[in-house]
Design a protein around this nucleic acid. Structure first.
Lengths: 225, 225
DNA sequence: CACGATCATGACGGGGCGTCACGATCGTCC
DNA sequence: GGACGATCGTGACGCCCCGTCATGATCGTG
């Protein structure tokens, strides 16, 4: 249930509609049980996004999130164990939405430069759009903590790793420390991206140019393995 | 006062010593009031370092820190307002101790490469030594949060900024986006440094080589302003 | 329609939080 | 050396957040 603010769904209406179908049990819509479950999950995630955006991660409490959903406190714990887990779920969600974009870039790329530019630009555009949904006008106090090692986040890291290996292999580039390289690429993208968001107007092209040129120019100079 | 575990200081002994001096009031040692104050501050900081190291930042509570000091709960709040403030004080302390090393490198440096190599190697050695004091054998769960914008931490950032500007100016290098460059340098140093600590044995030379070559090679390729 | 599984509910004990009135200790001045 | 005032340690207290659990409502199913 969605709590006390739950207005009664027109369930009977839906039921009468089902009468038109010979086999009601193959109705694409999942049962109400399943629907309220996903609705509650989403409500908690949305509330958490708002609360983290307004109060910051540290100041936010589980109770703040619960209050905003209108659910009972116990209900929250049917879905997530803690504030950390909700945050991880949000990070996971972001990573899950970004991964296809990254993969598209790595498949579209013809060489290392086009991959790097495509991937970094895609990331910068992604975070620029996310910012408007996340911290609308949050005071520039403390930044949100970095994403932890959730499955989807790790998958993005691995994707970068593999894409780098693939592209460099294809170009017969000399072998370098791929682990360090991937780490450096992600570090540069992450921090330049953050700085980029502080500037007005937000210029993803210029930021991507900077990051790409830095890595691209540094690559030939890296120590060989 | 240092709490109930306080063993009585040989104050009378010290006093009798003072009798040797014609003017006791110019004794270099600050008064007992001042001494216990700094002792309490230090005790809290030490306890916090241990607690953060053992439990991680998120799990640690102010009460955990208080318990380890043996002080009363109220005493803690005479020195710091919150867990966040203690953490910032620890970060500030680290930055305060690292800054002279950084400055020495920037003064010793003859060109951009020697500065970069010296600074990054100094940083890697610094964090490698700090690690042994901080998280002795902490499970690799969640890393400690990044340092916030405390005065000393900001000072280190500015120092990097200025040192970069000075060295590049001296070499008549083409003008680049110094803000992005400093951000990228710090990002690479921070993240490569972290990865470095996960490897056995910890090889600060190899890590520094990688970071230095990447930035050094990328510099000429950066977009001009 | 009736039964069983599922899940929302909110009261509850446990505990961390920050405060404050009290008293001990220290510096100072006569 | 004694007494006064400022400073600061102390720990009990009220408040709120935490996570749990017995209860009952609701849904799917036969």
């Amino acid at each position: 249930m969605t709590g006390r603010h739950d207005r009664p769904e027109p369930e009977s209406f839906s039921m009468s509609n089902i009468a038109y179908f010979p086999k009601p049990h193959i109705d694409q819509r999942p049962g109400k049980r399943e629907r309220t479950k996903t609705a509650n999950r989403q409500a908690i995630l949305d509330a958490a996004r708002e609360v983290f955006g307004e109060l910051g991660y540290d100041a936010a409490t589980v109770r703040d999130i619960i209050r905003r959903t209108g659910l009972a406190s116990g209900t929250f714990y049917n879905y997530y164990k803690s504030k950390e887990e909700v945050f991880d779920a949000l990070a996971d969600d972001g990573a899950r939405r970004f991964r296809p974009l990254l993969r598209a870039e790595s498949e579209k790329a013809t060489d290392f430069e086009s991959f790097l530019r495509g991937a970094i630009l895609a990331y910068f555009n992604f975070v620029a759009e996310e910012q408007e949904a996340w911290r609308l006008d949050r005071p520039p106090g403390e930044p949100l903590p970095h994403a932890r090692s959730t499955p989807e986040v790790v998958a993005v890291f691995d994707e970068v790793h593999e894409a780098l290996a693939r592209v460099l292999e294809r170009e017969h580039a000399p072998p370098v420390d791929l682990d360090y390289l991937a780490t450096a690429c992600i570090a540069v993208a992450r921090e330049i991206g953050e700085k980029m968001l502080e500037r007005r107007p937000v210029d993803t092209q210029a930021a991507a140019n900077f990051a790409v040129q830095l890595i691209l120019g540094g690559l030939p100079a890296l120590p060989r393995l």
